[in-house]
Computed example of a mutant assay.
Amino acid sequence: MMLLEPKLTELISGCQSGKRKAQEMLYQLFASKMLGVCMRYATDKMEAEDMLQNGFIKVFSKIKDYRGEGAFEGWVRRIMVHAAIEYYRKNHKMMQLVEMSLAGTEQSVLAVATHSLEAKDLLAMIQTLPPGYRLVFNLYAIEGYAHKEIAEMLGISEGASKSQLSRARTILKETVVKAERVRYENFG
């Protein structure tokens, strides 16, 4: 369901006034797309749904701060990402960190033509990453944050962020190579 801008403005205004019906409609409008954002950070759908609920609680509690600058969907998305990070911090004991000295010794993986993989396949591969790697990979590669910003958000060093990303990329490349090899063997 696509809303015209004036209708979205009405919904935002209604939410800022605390109207439950407006909140419900805004939730219906953005929930499925934001669940997709949360799924990238979660280990399963139930965890993503928890992140989504926490995110919308924050959206509704902070909506009075929204000034109409930039896209509203982008504003909601940032809140969801931060809710996912907060959930991760509370519910996952410790990120798996790779020592910087080990990051440089990773084996090089041959470049693979990923054009044959669909987006859903790549997202599924990202989901298999260990939680710490997946978190940094999503923040850097998908959300576009810099290592300095990621380090600040997660309370880690920039070096740790870089090594997490490096290891995530290596694991993903290896996963893609294996998938392509299986595909070639089955259809080659």
Rank of each mutant, 00 (worst) to 15 (best):
M2P: 09
L3T: 00
E5D: 13
E10M: 15
E10G: 12
E10F: 14
Q16K: 15
S17H: 08
G18T: 04
K21Q: 14
K21C: 06
A22W: 03
A22F: 05
Q23H: 07
E24C: 03
M25K: 10
F30A: 13
A31R: 10
L35N: 00
G36I: 08
V37N: 02
R40V: 04
T43F: 00
M46K: 14
E47A: 08
A48T: 07
D50N: 12
D50R: 07
Q53A: 13
V59Y: 03
S61G: 00
I63H: 08
A71E: 15
F72L: 09
R77G: 06
R78L: 10
R78H: 07
Y87K: 12
H92A: 04
M94Y: 04
M95E: 03
M95N: 06
V98Q: 03
E99P: 02
M100K: 09
S101T: 05
L102N: 10
L102T: 04
A103H: 05
T105C: 02
E106V: 14
E106D: 02
Q107H: 09
Q107M: 13
L110D: 00
L110N: 02
A111S: 11
V112Y: 01
T114A: 15
E118K: 15
K120S: 13
D121A: 14
I126G: 02
Q127G: 07
P131L: 07
P131H: 08
L139V: 07
E143C: 06
G144T: 11
G144D: 11
G144F: 09
E149V: 06
A151K: 04
G155K: 08
I156D: 01
S157A: 10
K162N: 13
L165E: 09
R167N: 04
R167A: 03
I171F: 04
E174G: 01
T175S: 07
V176K: 08
V176L: 13
V176C: 14
A179D: 01
E180W: 01
E180V: 10
R181K: 15
V182P: 00
R183E: 11
Y184P: 00
F187E: 14
